[in-house]
Simulated assay, not measured.
Amino acid sequence: MEERVEGAVGLPEDAPGHVVRRRGRTTLLIAGAVVLGLVVGACAGYLVQADREPTKLPSLSQPTMPQAKGPAPEPLSAARDRRVKTDGDLRKLLLTKPKGAKDADWLEGQDGWLDLAAYADSYEKPEEIFGDLVGNEFRRAAVVGWAEGSSYTVELRLVQFRQEETVAAADYCDNNQYWAEKESSTDSWPIAGTGTGMAYVHHKPKTEAGYLPLYSAEAHAWRGDVSLEIWVYGSRTISKKKIMDLAERQMERL
């Protein structure tokens, strides 16, 4: 199984990089000038207002609003409330291994979970992406995989972020799509019902002396605070139907 070789750090200028940029010195100088202008303006406004007669304020009392009649609305069930699902055991939302497939013995992590270090280690520069994930409020990642005979291997990941400061799930999805689209001889299709989700089939295999050519396909989408990553590898070109079926069925579970 080949490791993902495209990282999220050190992206070209046209990449939708999710690394938070530090403010430059010019930005700080502009911010300082704005603060100074606000202070000067506030002082001038105070002097003008001090010479004016006080303005009578309206009454603070407000008319009583009638309460709506009828029973209180029922809370959403767990089946309808997506947040309830994604706050539970994330592994239960992953597709299950199909009948006849073999367990994946190459998966990183433990018991279906990928911690921060294990997830960062799947990138080309783990030490850099580790800090990026911390800054983007990485919460957890669940993973499942299987082998279908000697033809294909499948790996699916759900990567969840806290998203108190940024919409990191969308950013990481965009980043993965950027690198997928950079591959030559690649076809792509939108994943229905996902907004920006995309599936990709790479027709040019990876080759290495002593090994069979390795073809690949992938899919990336996001919903709420969860980013979906799917990879399929095989000894021959993966069909559009296969990668799209995996992506659509997995997104239905979110």
Rank of each mutant, 00 (worst) to 15 (best):
P63M: 06
G109F: 06
R80K: 15
N136I: 11
Y119D: 03
R139S: 08
Y123K: 08
P98A: 05
P71V: 06
P73A: 06
L95G: 10
L93C: 06
D89F: 02
A68P: 02
L57M: 10
D105F: 02
W106K: 00
D51V: 07
Q67P: 04
R83C: 09
K69Y: 04
W106N: 03
L94W: 00
R83N: 14
L116T: 05
A141G: 06
C43L: 13
F130I: 00
R140Y: 01
E53L: 14
A78N: 12
D132Y: 12
K125A: 14
E108Q: 09
L116H: 12
E53V: 12
A142I: 03
V48H: 09
L90N: 05
I129A: 07
A50S: 13
D121W: 04
Y123M: 05
I129F: 08
P66K: 08
A44P: 00
A101D: 14
S77P: 03
T64E: 15
K85Y: 01
R83P: 06
R83K: 15
L116N: 09
K125Q: 15
L57R: 12
K92S: 15
A42F: 01
F130Y: 10
F138L: 04
Y46G: 05
A120V: 01
Y46S: 11
L93Q: 09
I129K: 11
M65N: 12
K85W: 00
T96V: 13
E74T: 15
Q62K: 15
E53D: 14
D132R: 11
G109L: 05
V40H: 04
A118M: 07
D111I: 01
D103A: 15
A79D: 10
F130R: 13
D81M: 05
Q49G: 09
Q49I: 13
K85C: 02
T86I: 11
R52G: 03
D81V: 03
Q67R: 08
D87R: 15
Q49T: 14
V48E: 12
K69R: 10
W106T: 11
R91K: 03
D103W: 02
D81Q: 05
P75A: 05
E74F: 04
W106C: 02
P71L: 02
Q67A: 14
S61G: 08
R140G: 01
R139T: 00
P54Y: 05
L94A: 09
E53N: 14
L116G: 05
S59N: 09
L95S: 10
P98W: 07
T55N: 02
Y123W: 13
A118C: 02
A142R: 00
P54N: 07
L93H: 02
E53P: 12
L133P: 04
D81T: 01
R140D: 10
N136F: 08
V48W: 04
D132I: 10
Q49Y: 15
K92I: 03
E124D: 14
K97G: 06
P66G: 07
L47H: 12
P75F: 01
D115R: 06
A117K: 15
L116I: 14
D105C: 04
W113T: 13
V84M: 10
V48M: 07
W106Q: 07
L57Q: 11
A72Q: 09
D121Q: 11
P71D: 04
D89P: 00
A50L: 09
D105G: 14
V84G: 03
L90M: 03
P54L: 08
E108F: 09
S77D: 13
G112Y: 06
K125S: 15
E124G: 11
